[in-house]
Design a binder for these strands. Structure first.
Lengths: 224, 224
DNA sequence: ACCTGAACACCGTTCAAGT
DNA sequence: ACCTGAACACCGTTCAAGT
């Protein structure tokens, strides 16, 4: 006698756990995008009901934060242990962080409201503080600086990241560029004079310039 | 003979229009929060079906952008026409912008992905460009600077704004502060040394410092 | 062109009941 | 303690049919 079909269709049902939930969520995100990462969908993937997930995660926001922390394991923190120009090394870590988030702008967007608090995030913060210390930025100023730098890096990923709803975002971006083009020079002379230079241009160069602005500003601005 | 009840219960049904939709949406948001601003709910308020709204707005993202633009009418742009220290005046406009968004962090969050493109937004951009010009920042640099300044102001509102899901956000914030407190000094010495100073502190002071960092950085960093 | 009802294909979260 | 099915109270968007 064969076992019931349900016993043969899948491998033995894995035990539910926070780790299993987060890694399943990341898998679904990688394949189908963040929009498909819903409690019901993750539950389905784990062969259970959505209600069961609430034993391990408080809500969707917490799940997103846990996913992001997992992703942050890929950030290259080696520059914190290297030698050489601290500004370059700071920029290198931030660029790595931004690139990791760039493929998942939706996750970056949610991180602005709910920051992760896992090991990978803490390691990133520690690395940034280490480099700022090497640059002789006093600790109290460095603490605010990290916040500012991470905010900029995260927002940039959320804003310009590729993927998923980016198709929709592209349309809205064009609408903004169009609006700037149609502006009347009598009413908005500065916008009209800048033309396409206002909202377009190489994203990578803007990012590099943004880091430089922040680092120069941090060095030049003591905490009150 | 009295008219049918349905004819007496409400004032004569107003004609549908983009303006009516946006102002109804703002009304619902003010009273019940952004989470309640759904296509179905706005339609109900306007005595019609959700499908009818799609004649005037492409989707939810566009509705949010239109709402935000309307809100931006409250930003104080007078400093652009005043005299005195351009840095102070730039900060004044940005502070006003941030305060307008502060009550609606959810709208600020969505603005990062879909910027508004209406008159009030364009007026704000024009005002910022005007002040930067008065500060002798060259136009090309000013164009990138505006992007950076608005991004910072908007993100700050999205992150630290009050209201609605802020209750939930508060919990997650505490979780982050807790995580920083529990850190092992051997592994994360810089985080441990900073203690509560890392994630806490007066939001207003951090905001002012952030503006100063950006302005100093912009002045010090030419465009490549 | 504008408007509509109905349908499609979903959501997050809670809770009583089970093990 | 963990897990579940079912229920509650919703979503955005499309489309054929009407005016």
């Amino acid at each position: 006698m064969t076992p019931p079909a349900s016993r043969r269709e899948r491998p033995a049902k894995a035990a539910l756990s926070r780790t299993a939930i987060v890694s399943t969520a990341l898998e679904v995100m990688r394949v189908e995008g963040l929009a498909k990462v819903t409690m019901r969908r993750i539950a389905q993937e784990l062969d259970t009901g959505a209600a069961s997930l609430y034993v391990y995660v408080r809500n969707t926001a917490e799940l997103h934060a846990a996913m992001l922390d997992e992703l942050l394991g890929a950030v290259d923190l080696k520059p914190a242990k290297a030698r050489g120009d601290w500004r370059k090394r700071l920029e290198a870590v931030l660029t790595s962080y931004t690139m990791v988030l760039f493929d998942q702008p939706g996750l970056a967007q949610s991180a602005l409201v709910t920051w992760p608090n896992g090991d990978n995030f803490l390691n990133t913060v520690e690395a940034l503080l280490t480099i700022l210390d090497q640059g002789n930025v006093e600790p109290k100023r460095a603490s605010w600086a990290v916040d500012l730098l991470l905010q900029f890096a995260t927002t940039t990923a959320a804003e310009h990241g590729t993927r998923a709803q980016a198709i929709d975002g592209e349309e809205q971006w064009d609408a903004l560029v169009d609006a700037a083009r149609r502006v009347k020079p009598e009413i908005h002379p500065h916008i009209a004079a800048l033309g396409d230079d206002l909202w377009s241009g190489d994203g990578r160069q803007r990012l590099t310039w943004g880091y430089a602005v922040l680092i120069n500003g941090i060095v030049a601005t003591p905490r009150p």
